[in-house]
């Protein structure tokens, strides 16, 4: 199952809620303001790294680029473009958008 998160974790609970509820072996894709959850040195970095033991975390490159934080992404988070986003929705059997 692919989870998408589109909210900043400093504003809303979507990312933490997603990390708490996602099943082992699933993937989380950070899009839109959700990409702020992938920023290095933030108060949520440890939680994100902890989640990465059980799930793969991806971030959408266009959203990182536009926000000026592509160079600040936590090691281990994989960057994808929209083609990669589509591929993830194909690879995983369904999508849960944590709106």
């Amino acid at each position: 199952m692919l989870h998408t998160v589109n909210k900043s974790p400093f504003d809303r609970n979507s990312l933490e809620r997603c990390m708490r509820t996602c099943d082992k072996g699933s993937a989380i894709l950070l899009i839109e303001d959700g990409v702020y959850g992938g920023i290095k040195g933030s108060v949520i970095e440890d939680k994100v790294k902890g989640a990465m033991k059980d799930v793969k975390i991806y971030a959408l490159e266009a959203d990182l680029d536009s926000r000026g934080i592509k160079g600040r992404v936590i090691d281990g988070i994989q960057l994808v473009d929209y083609n990669g986003f589509v591929d993830l929705t194909v690879e995983y059997d369904k999508v849960q958008s944590w709106l």
Binding site: N6, I31, E32, D33, A62, D81, Y82, N83, F85, V86, D87, V90
Partner: peptide, 19 residues
């Protein structure tokens, strides 16, 4: 909100890939 841009870019990429 960015949602319609995200949706458009996703759809365009999916079509490009033959979905």
């Amino acid at each position: 909100h960015q949602a319609s841009d995200s949706a458009y870019n996703f759809v365009a990429a999916a079509l490009e890939k033959g979905h």
